[in-house]
């Protein structure tokens, strides 16, 4: 196995750093996207025409903004947001520089998934909470979100996997990570082994994310 040893000594450090960068981008931006996305998703649900506090005009405007953002391809958003990104994190490259566009891109996606998960909560359980005299923030915090949690966790795997795709695209503009390596070595230098290994790492990552979320979702779900 001299080839393997050689490969590891030459590219091992690079691939390890790439994996760490990818994971950092992935988890930091997804976490921030959830902070924003949960807030927007809850507001979309609560203000919908059949929601707890219907505000049709506001809901329509917010929904339209969410759809707008979702319809911009990530690579274009990345470039368009550069002035904004520079203003808030003082760089547009590396893991830090790519986090703002990743968050802006993922948050509306998360918002729609949260809205969807909340809509799946049976209506009469929420009405029962309302009939107990619970305020809307209380219903959201103590009834809606806990009831929707297994579905939200299943959504997390979908979000993580699409953000993982975005991080690879971000690699093309110098964000670092596995996507960056695949493009630099595989595309520009024709070092196929490196590209194959990055792809394998990405595949493994997707599998691990999916299985972990499934296991957690099933464990916390009490509707058997």
């Amino acid at each position: 196995m001299p080839n393997v040893t050689e490969f590891v000594s030459e590219y091992g450090g690079l691939l390890a750093q790439g994996t760490v960068d990818t994971l950092a981008m992935l988890f930091v931006s997804t976490a921030l996207a959830y902070v924003l996305g949960i807030a927007i998703g809850v507001v979309l649900y609560v203000t919908s025409p059949t929601g707890l506090r219907p505000m049709p005009a506001f809901n329509a405007v917010l929904g339209w903004i969410v759809n707008m953002t979702r319809s911009i391809p990530f690579i274009i958003l990345l470039v368009a947001l550069m002035p904004f990104t520079r203003a808030i994190v003082h760089t547009t490259i590396g893991v830090v520089g790519v986090t703002p566009p990743l968050v802006v891109s993922a948050a509306p996606f998360v918002a729609r998934m949260i809205e969807q998960s909340l809509a799946e909560v049976p209506r009469d359980a929420i009405e029962a909470a309302e009939a107990c005299g619970a305020s809307i923030p209380r219903i959201v915090r103590s009834a809606l979100l806990p009831e929707a949690l297994p579905s939200i966790v299943r959504g997390v795997s979908i979000t993580l996997i699409s953000v993982l795709g975005y991080t690879a695209i971000a690699g093309a503009v110098g964000a670092g990570g596995l996507g960056d390596i695949a493009i630099r070595y595989g595309y520009y230098r024709y070092e196929d082994e490196v590209m194959v290994v990055t792809v394998i790492l990405l595949v493994v990552l997707v599998q691990v994310i999916q299985s972990t979320c499934d296991v957690i979702a099933n464990r916390i779900d009490h509707r058997k």
């Binding site: 107990c132 005299g133 009834a143």
Partner: peptide, 20 residues
């Protein structure tokens, strides 16, 4: 309104329990 609702409890055909 919330104080009034506490005086008037409600029971539903579908029970309306929180499954989690």
């Amino acid at each position: 309104l919330r104080a009034y609702r506490r005086r008037v409890a409600m029971i539903f055909q579908g029970f309306g329990l929180l499954a989690q």
